[in-house]
């Protein structure tokens, strides 16, 4: 099934809150080689002015994945994971994510264009905290291949 022609502009309802756990931050930091003490040590994080351990800059992808999952689960969108290649990724960060945050994602498709035989689907995930303040915006382009 091809990418839905009316996909551009489609938005999805805000996701259920994602609770950022201290051990998840440490686990993600270890996986990306983030060794700074503020990622691991609560006292070091507090001494640096943070409420708790600080997630690495790309941790927002874990949260925005909850938004992407809505698109992949939307049968009418015509996007199958097996045909998707990650084209580009950008994070615009208003403040670092810290353990204890409860984050929601508002996810939408901002543009669709043809790229050879493929479709380039641009998406945006706006991540907000429990107060409704914007924490980060994750923008990505997915190259969706034609049917094999």
């Amino acid at each position: 099934m091809p990418v839905a022609p009316d996909l551009s502009g489609r938005t999805y309802p805000p996701t259920a809150p994602y609770a950022v756990g201290r051990e998840k931050v440490r686990e993600f930091a270890a996986a990306v080689g983030a060794t700074h003490p503020v990622h691991h040590d609560v006292e070091a994080a507090r001494a640096a002015g943070y409420a708790d351990v600080v997630a690495p800059p790309t941790f927002a992808i874990v949260v925005s994945q909850r938004g992407l999952d809505q698109l992949l689960a939307d049968d009418s969108a015509g996007i199958e994971l097996s045909r998707v290649v990650h084209g580009d990724q950008r994070f615009t960060i208003e403040r670092p994510i810290v353990a204890g945050d409860e984050l929601q994602v508002a996810f939408g498709v901002t543009n669709v264009r043809a790229l050879g035989g493929n479709a380039m689907v641009s998406t945006e995930a706006r991540i907000t905290d429990a107060d409704g303040a914007l924490v980060a915006t994750a923008s990505s382009s997915l190259v969706v291949g034609a049917d094999a």
Binding site: V38, F91, R95
Partner: peptide, 13 residues
């Protein structure tokens, strides 16, 4: 010396 100083990060794969 502080991950909080990163305000924007982008790449193309």
């Amino acid at each position: 010396g502080d991950p909080g100083r990163v305000v924007d990060y982008q790449v193309r794969f």
